[in-house]
């Protein structure tokens, strides 16, 4: 009985660990589907960030993934205009996305990724204790965004972050 009780406790702990989101303990945020099965073909296209760690405000981000392993990213986040980044990405085992910017800066972390069955929702979950879950919806990058790129000279000091 004692052993059964211990195994039950362990089983409960495993269930609890696998059902927690990364940095979010918000019960309203849907848990990402199980990883795997993502291909470059499914990933290719333009995506718009719609939810970042349960926060709909902040960080207007568009990402375009190409079949040749390159990406283009537009972000309205830390500056008074959109910053544009480019680089290369790779997809490992159909579930882990890593990347490096064109200036050889690696991404902050790698991301577990999944795409829903309809192919319209991309979910990225930060790895390496990042744990932030981001939801992207398949959406063309608007001209307004492409017309709002600020020049590097106009951006504030980029050494402000690590």
């Amino acid at each position: 009985m004692k052993h059964i009780k211990i195994w039950s406790l362990l089983a409960m702990a495993v269930v609890a660990m696998t059902s927690c989101g990364g940095g979010s303990d918000d019960n309203d945020t849907p848990n990402p589907p199980a990883g795997g099965g993502v291909t470059v073909e499914k990933l290719a296209g333009e995506w718009h960030l719609t939810l970042f760690d349960s926060n709909k405000q902040g960080g207007d981000v568009y990402i375009s993934f190409a079949a040749d392993g390159t990406f283009e990213l537009y972000q309205l986040a830390y500056n008074a205009g959109y910053d544009r980044y480019t680089g290369r990405f790779s997809l490992e085992n159909g579930s882990v996305l890593t990347g490096v910017y064109s200036d050889n800066t690696p991404w902050a972390t790698s991301y577990a990724c999944s795409i829903d069955a309809a192919g319209t929702t991309l979910i990225l979950t930060g790895q390496n204790s990042d744990g932030i879950i981001s939801y992207y919806t398949k959406s063309a990058i608007p001209d307004d965004v492409k017309n709002s790129i600020i020049t590097k000279a106009a951006a504030t000091d980029q050494t402000r972050w690590l």
Partner: peptide, 18 residues
């Protein structure tokens, strides 16, 4: 003014979102 605080163990050093 409302601002969005983005707290992460690490940010890309060039300010990139990913």
């Amino acid at each position: 003014k409302e601002m969005a605080l983005v707290a992460r163990p690490k940010h890309a050093s060039n300010g990139g979102w990913l």
